[in-house]
Design a protein around this nucleic acid. Sequence first.
DNA 1: CTGAAAGCGCTTACAG
DNA 2: CTGAAAGCGCTTACAG
Lengths: 340, 340
Amino acid sequence: MVSIQDVARQAGTSFKTVSRVINDDPAVREETRGKVLKAIEELGYRPNSAARTMRSQRSGVIGFISDRVTIQPPAGDILRGAQQVADQYGKVLMTVNIDKESHYRQRALDMLLERRVEGLLYASDYHREVDVPEEMRSVPSVLANCFSSRVSLPTLIPDEEGATRQATQLLLDQGHRCIAYIGLNPQSVAAPLRLSGFLKAMADAGVSVEEHLYTMPGVAGHPDGEEVSLVEEAMGKFVALDSVPTAVVCAQDSIAMNVYLFLARHGLSVGEDMAVVSIDNQRPICTFLSPGLTTLEIPHHEMGVQAMLRILERTGDTDVILVPFSLINRESHYSSLVEV
Amino acid sequence: MVSIQDVARQAGTSFKTVSRVINDDPAVREETRGKVLKAIEELGYRPNSAARTMRSQRSGVIGFISDRVTIQPPAGDILRGAQQVADQYGKVLMTVNIDKESHYRQRALDMLLERRVEGLLYASDYHREVDVPEEMRSVPSVLANCFSSRVSLPTLIPDEEGATRQATQLLLDQGHRCIAYIGLNPQSVAAPLRLSGFLKAMADAGVSVEEHLYTMPGVAGHPDGEEVSLVEEAMGKFVALDSVPTAVVCAQDSIAMNVYLFLARHGLSVGEDMAVVSIDNQRPICTFLSPGLTTLEIPHHEMGVQAMLRILERTGDTDVILVPFSLINRESHYSSLVEV
DNA sequence: CTGAAAGCGCTTACAG
DNA sequence: CTGAAAGCGCTTACAG
């Protein structure tokens, strides 16, 4: 491969001058710079980042440990957000995907540390507790979409409670009072938080809800179960009530999809006979449903952005920051049953 | 940071011996090895990969250029497949996500080449033509899920035609003769191929199809349009025919989802009144529908595996290889309308 | 504005 | 089985 020396020879300067040109050092005469640039072009020279790293002791890379982020679709936005910020700071991301087994996690970490990463971002595919190695603390590290109770690290997680609270409030504001809720399997971290947001919004509005709660017994918070025909059961229960709900809050978009199917089978229309609001903004479900699903988007991108900022700005106190969801307004939250 | 020299001092050997231990050189006495390992442990030593790369002239990294692969969910499987193979060969992947703009593509490529990657895998989120820089040819490079007519490179793309052919055959084998097809926007690369697979299977079976074709006018091959209420139009046309189709082949899962909704609204059942087979195996749609959607999975994982193998084994002739889809059997392809 | 020297932390190639 | 020397391709710190 062609080196700085070859370029210097070709340009008729010392190799140090070439180094200056590469590093945009202003202290180079325009004429000299021109000659060097020409030589670089002719030779197809490309700086060797290993040599730079070794000498400067700065790798310029941030490690991104993806705990199934790129497998579980929407969580990939964490990566996008992180990369955008890294770009702006002139850093590059080195992404490693790991699987469940801690064996891989350790290997990934070793590899990144051997590459002298200047920071570490650990992101999970869905909101949950993770078991991260203590060694992460040897460089500025941040957790995104997950948390650790054992190793204390700056942490960004989605504001689950705020999401359902806002979803419910949207329906209350439209005049709905009889609102049902279909929740997640209580084993997921998000389940009690999302339920609580619904309950608090209803309580604040002074509306009782006992009959209108349904928690999925078999569906993991992780949107991958096959058990969502249980939505059938929930909706069946709701429409058999004396006062049929005029709206339903779904704790995830795949539930909403099955609500659409249930209503279709019963000759009812979403956005007319029943208002639907959901959580996730999971593609392609939400974009392909008709009427469009009004939903609260998990702030994956924003978590990625903020996590990377904390790494690069070293604002790494070990706080846990709740990142708000954002409302994606489509049409499913309308209803002809209530006065607006 | 602690170096090989520090370890040598602590272990009472020369640094060269430490190097041997790190590199699993068998020519080290067990006792010596033990001392060195102990020193490594005590000092928390970690080899510096930049130094290794510089001296050995081998970076051990393969560049993975992800053209929105991690954004478009299922395509992330290309990355997983590639990473599995790279792992086995002791290589690590350096992943860069790029956006539409060629500006980013060039930056990503420069960065990877400066890091002296030993190979390059360019993967796209959906099957399409891409415009890759000529410089990719300076290292062993492969295209996955995309192709370039300008730069000739080994290429792995999904066998679109084979997929619809197999889907259609599945229905024919069950006795269906009146089979409808809802296709993609003809602008996508996959559209004519998928259509052709359907037509060929039908022709081979000697069945005519004129009335039973429908091509989405507005929906891109990229599953992201909002226009899928057009499925409504297609299905409306089909059920109004003199001989209503007993089965429908959908060119993508999101179309199938809307077929489910249409049938539900018309009091018809998937898997009973109409058989449905689709293409994609796109989560979460296919797992959350009831009955489960029988579909042909795009071989993302397999393309990643094979692409990486071609890079590492240097079997890089510039062939274009068609990778077959795999049939995911669920229940939607059954029907009570035909004899089995 | 330009250059000569030293050295980052390893591996290579050669001795012993 | 172990070691001393050279050098990978740059940047740093110092001179001029």
